[in-house]
Design a protein around this nucleic acid. Sequence first.
DNA 1: TCTCTCGCAACCTTTCTTGTTACAGAAATT
DNA 2: AATTTCTGTAACAAGAAAGGTTGCGAGAGA
Lengths: 159, 159
Amino acid sequence: MRRDSRLSRTLHLLLHMERFAQPATSEHLAGMLQTNPVVVRRMMQGLKAAGLVQAARGHGGGWTLGRPLVEITLLNVHEALGSTVVFNIGLSEDDPKCLVEQAVKARLSDAMEAAEKELLDRFAGITLAEISQDFEERMQGLGLDAALPPICQPPAAKG
Amino acid sequence: MRRDSRLSRTLHLLLHMERFAQPATSEHLAGMLQTNPVVVRRMMQGLKAAGLVQAARGHGGGWTLGRPLVEITLLNVHEALGSTVVFNIGLSEDDPKCLVEQAVKARLSDAMEAAEKELLDRFAGITLAEISQDFEERMQGLGLDAALPPICQPPAAKG
DNA sequence: TCTCTCGCAACCTTTCTTGTTACAGAAATT
DNA sequence: AATTTCTGTAACAAGAAAGGTTGCGAGAGA
């Protein structure tokens, strides 16, 4: 487990969920990610708190979208996932005493905060609806019917 | 040890090294970082290969700068440190079969590669000489003489 | 020769993300 | 009411990555 892959995985799930008629159980979703249902529930907690998804317990329960994909940006999901350190490179000390280190920290922090802001700005400008449309174009490109299958691993296109 | 702090630590060392009359030993440098000499040597290997620093063995040996600070950018140091994963957030799979996941990956990769490029562009535009000057201004701001001390933890300014 | 220094391999520790197990609680079905 | 399906959570294990530590070899000057 190298890097935090929750954003990628969560987007994957949300896009599939939109195409389900029924609520998707944690077990069902976990099957798509090839992981454990508890991992799914854990990821989903923040999204539930943010209103991006809803959870229903008991028979016939599971996960449903809290609002349409067009109203969900990558930034929404990223923030709903909770504290995520964006960069793997970082400072050695929080509050350096050494003036040299302070000068280093000032420049590095500036550059990294700016880069992080630009990344998050990009995230804010991308809705899940756009990605869903991209998916549909990929389906059409393979000659498959995008309306049909709530598939995760589509069959290879047949010539 | 959370994040990769080699860039921050290395910059710290290089800036101090410029102010030394003698080569700085790994042990000396390690003292500044409050770590082990081996950690310093390990970080320095890439910089040596890139010509940013030189190593001398034996009596009176140690580390010296390979070229003036004005000719060293943050990008030079970053790249000399070797394979560094810039982002902590990442994709869940390298080569997803699922078309939904492919669409997700495409958008995420685009955004992150663009953000990474911008960060590295920023790094390329900052020389160590600029940070050194920033340091000197901080010294003057405290009423200290920047020319004097090869200090790491400066004494508190006296009123 | 002796001492100082880097070079390098091997191993340990800490931390982070993810995976797993176990059980409690809520809701629909029987 | 009992049972079956669900989510909610805590607790712990596994695996990877960064950094720390030790030990020893080799080069270079005194």
